[in-house]
Amino acid sequence: MSNSKLYKGSLTTIILKLLNENDKMYGYEITQRVKELTKGELKITEGALYPALHKLEAEGLLDVEVAKVDNRLRKYYKLTETGTKETVNKLEELAEYIKTMQALVNPKLA
C-alpha cells in the first residue's frame, strides 16, 4: 500500500468487504476496485495484496477457484461461510475503531 501505513491494518477488512459485495474477485480486480472507490487515494500493491489473500485462504476465510480467462488462468477468491461471518466481525471492529479515533481526534464530532 503506497499511501499510508495507517491503511495497512485495515487491508484484511477491505478485502473481506469487497468480496462480501461481489461473488468472486481476482487480485488485479481488487486493486482496481479499491483505486476506483477511493478515487486513487488508496493503491494496494500486489506485494501487500497477495500475501493477505493467501493468509485469508490459509485461515479458511477464502475459497479459491481457478478459471481460464483470456488465454490465461485466473485465480478467483470468494468468501467461505466462516469468511462471511468474519466479515461482519471485522466491519464492526473497524466501525468501533473509527468511532474511537473520532473521539480522540475530533471530540466534537464523536
Binding site: 500493491t45 500486489e46 506485494g47 497477495y50 500475501p51 493467501h54 490459509a58 485461515e59
Partner: peptide
C-alpha cells in the same frame, strides 16, 4: 524488482499454508 520481492512473499505464504494444514 517488486514482482521478484512478491515471489519471496508468496513462498512465505506457502510455508504458512503448510504449517496451518
Amino acid at each position: 524488482a517488486q514482482l521478484l520481492k512478491d515471489n519471496r512473499q508468496f513462498l512465505k505464504s506457502a510455508d504458512m499454508k503448510i504449517w496451518k494444514a
